[in-house]
Amino acid sequence: MSNRTVHRVHRGTRIALTAVALTAAMSAAPISAAPSYQPAAPVEATYYAPGPWAVAERSGADCCTSTGDTYDIWYPANLDAGVHPVITWGNGTMAHPREYAYLLAHLASWGFVVIATDRTDTGTGAQMLDAVHYLAEQNNDPSSVFHGKIDLDAVGAVGHSQGGLGALNALARESGLIDTAVTLEMPLAAVCSSLPTVDGQSTCVDTSAITSGSVLLVNGSADGISPGTQQLPPALIGRQSMQAYYDALPAQVPKARAALVGAQHNDIQGQPDCTNYSCAEGVYRYLGYLAAWFRGQLRDDPAARGAFVAGTGEFLHNPYWAEQASTLTH
């Protein structure tokens, strides 16, 4: 058991957010590199390929969050090779973990235990934190497959759309527990403020209140719900872009951001290709750098971390991405 203490813009826009989150139910696809897609750089290519672990999956067998939701878990089938970092996942509005199965299995193949709450509104981050606490309990339970296999000193949070808000809220609420947060197509403030409260709590996030950990903000350049930039300053219209969220993060928080060129709101739900609304090419181009970010931040993998270093990092010069920025120094 780790020595870490675990108890520790308008109506039309809102309709659009709800609509793009609706997709057909998908079953988990086997992880394999797509021959039709060729990564543009060496680090991306390394982590775009499946990792060294075969992946096992538990669906709906684990329960429960504080609001009664079950978990889906993807994890290395051979857990005996040491302890494994945790990634807690947040779904987009009205979405379920199975709609991200290809991505989540890919992350698990790189040695992570990936746990996803089967809840369709994850924006407060509360259930994402419940998932980490659940794995902490399993880590202490001699009858659990996860007994003694969870590294609670290495925990990341990531989510799509409203789940991206949840990832940042989880980091802000328990920064001593969450080490890094990644947002994928997180909605601009005008959309966020139009969402209903969840369990009486707002899903909106104040990035200036995040004081520790690290943050990666990712959006698609064709996603109007998650724009990269805004014409008017936040002082006048609020944080309506990834750049505004990024700029508001305190200077001591290592951070990076970029827009995936041409990606729409639901490309991240590709299994791996698009079969759903608001998807242009599928999940392929997200795979390499998401795996690299978590390997760098949670496993201190030098090649993976180096891809995001300000000025020289591969991620900042990859032609599939635009609007890159970073404050990482090593």
Score class of each variant (00 low, 15 high):
170 A>F: 05
273 D>G: 09
80 D>E: 09
270 G>S: 01
280 A>W: 00
5 T>F: 09
201 Q>I: 03
146 F>A: 03
252 Q>L: 14
85 P>W: 12
195 L>S: 01
148 G>D: 03
116 A>G: 10
284 Y>Q: 06
171 L>Q: 02
43 V>E: 04
90 G>H: 05
272 P>N: 04
227 P>W: 06
206 D>H: 01
10 H>M: 04
229 T>W: 00
143 S>Y: 13
211 T>C: 06
273 D>Y: 12
48 Y>F: 14
56 A>C: 15
195 L>Y: 09
218 V>W: 06
178 I>R: 08
126 A>H: 01
33 A>C: 07
25 A>Y: 14
136 A>E: 10
222 A>Q: 05
180 T>E: 09
320 Y>P: 00
283 V>H: 06
66 S>N: 11
119 R>N: 02
177 L>D: 13
196 P>M: 03
173 R>G: 03
213 G>C: 12
145 V>M: 10
110 W>C: 12
173 R>D: 14
154 A>R: 14
272 P>G: 05
266 N>T: 14
140 N>D: 11
66 S>F: 05
105 A>I: 00
157 A>H: 10
118 D>Q: 12
46 T>V: 15
43 V>M: 00
277 Y>M: 04
200 G>R: 13
266 N>F: 07
13 T>F: 00
71 Y>V: 14
122 T>V: 05
325 A>C: 13
48 Y>W: 08
145 V>S: 12
22 L>Y: 01
319 P>W: 15
116 A>H: 03
54 A>G: 11
265 H>G: 08
263 A>C: 07
89 W>A: 07
234 P>E: 07
313 G>N: 12
10 H>A: 11
263 A>Q: 11
255 K>A: 11
285 R>N: 09
38 Q>M: 05
98 R>V: 01
304 A>T: 05
79 L>K: 10
266 N>E: 09
208 S>C: 04
157 A>P: 05
126 A>E: 11
320 Y>K: 07
57 E>I: 04
318 N>S: 12
15 I>T: 13
250 P>C: 09
330 H>G: 08
281 E>Y: 03
98 R>L: 06
329 T>M: 05
173 R>C: 00
5 T>S: 12
104 L>Q: 00
286 Y>D: 01
147 H>S: 08
192 C>K: 05
84 H>D: 02
79 L>Q: 04
204 C>W: 10
136 A>T: 00
281 E>R: 00
261 V>R: 13
6 V>E: 13
187 P>V: 07
84 H>V: 06
228 G>Q: 07
109 S>I: 08
202 S>N: 06
180 T>P: 10
208 S>L: 03
144 S>E: 08
203 T>M: 03
286 Y>M: 02
226 S>A: 15
161 S>W: 06
89 W>S: 03
144 S>T: 03
143 S>F: 14
183 T>G: 13
2 S>G: 10
62 D>V: 14
17 L>R: 01
188 L>T: 14
23 T>D: 02
123 G>H: 02
196 P>F: 08
298 L>R: 07
82 G>F: 01
241 S>F: 10
175 S>I: 06
59 S>K: 13
188 L>Y: 09
39 P>A: 12
70 T>H: 15
77 A>I: 02
163 G>K: 06
287 L>M: 04
75 Y>H: 10
38 Q>P: 07
55 V>F: 02
129 L>A: 00
149 K>Y: 01
135 L>G: 04
